[in-house]
C-alpha cells in the first residue's frame, strides 16, 4: 500500500491548547524541512508556507551556528519586535524533530511561551502516532497495490 502523509489531525489539539494557554496570536507546528503539521491563527495558506519555509531556514542556520560557536545546535530562538515577538523552538516527537513557531504580543511573554513549550513537547510526545516501518517499494503485491491506489485517487475504488 502506498502511504500518504497526512498534515492534519493528531497535532491540532496539542497546538490549539498551546495557543490558548500561552495566549499566542499565531502558531505553527512543522517538520524541520518546513512541511506544516498544524497551524493556528493564519488566514492564508500562502502565509503558512512562507512562515514555514523561513522558520526551517532559520532553524537550519541556528543549528549550524550553534554547532560552530557552542559545540551543540541552538534549540530556541527569540526575537522581539516593536509590538510582536516570535519564538522558534524545537519539539522532539517520537520519531523526528519538529519545530514550533509562536507569535505573541504583550498578552504573553517569553517566559510564559517557554513554559508552555515544555508542555507542548510532552503533549506531542504523548499524541504523536508511532512510525510505521516502510515496506519495500517492490513488494510482491506492488502492482495490485498501485492499481488499488490509483483507483482510489481517481474515485473508482
Amino acid at each position: 500500500m502506498i502511504r500518504h502523509t497526512l498534515t492534519v489531525g493528531w497535532a491540532d489539539a496539542p497546538l490549539k491548547r498551546f495557543v490558548d494557554e500561552a495566549r499566542l496570536q499565531v502558531a505553527i507546528l512543522m517538520h524541520t524541512s518546513g512541511q506544516v503539521l498544524a497551524q493556528v491563527g493564519f488566514q492564508r495558506s500562502l502565509d503558512v508556507q512562507t512562515a514555514c519555509a523561513l522558520s526551517a531556514a532559520i532553524n537550519a542556520s541556528a543549528e549550524y551556528l550553534g554547532t560552530m560557536v557552542d559545540g551543540t545546535p541552538f534549540r530556541g530562538l527569540h526575537y522581539a519586535g516593536k509590538g510582536r515577538q516570535i519564538y522558534l523552538g524545537q519539539v522532539p516527537s517520537p520519531d523526528t524533530m519538529l519545530l514550533v513557531l509562536a507569535v505573541f504580543d504583550m498578552e504573553s511573554s517569553l517566559g510564559i511561551v517557554q513554559l508552555y513549550v515544555k508542555e507542548l513537547q510532552a503533549n506531542i510526545a504523548a499524541s504523536a502516532p508511532s512510525a510505521v516501518p516502510e515496506e519495500p517499494a517492490l513488494a510482491e503485491n506492488f502492482e495490485a497495490d498501485l492499481n488499488r491506489n490509483l483507483a482510489q485517487l481517481f474515485g473508482r475504488g
Binding site: 504573553s108 511573554s109 517566559g111 510564559i112 517557554q114 513554559l115
Partner: peptide, 13 residues
C-alpha cells in the same frame, strides 16, 4: 524557578 518566574511576572503585569 523558571515556571514560577514566568507566571508571577505575568500576574504582576
Amino acid at each position: 524557578t523558571a515556571a514560577f518566574a514566568a507566571l508571577t511576572a505575568s500576574l504582576y503585569r
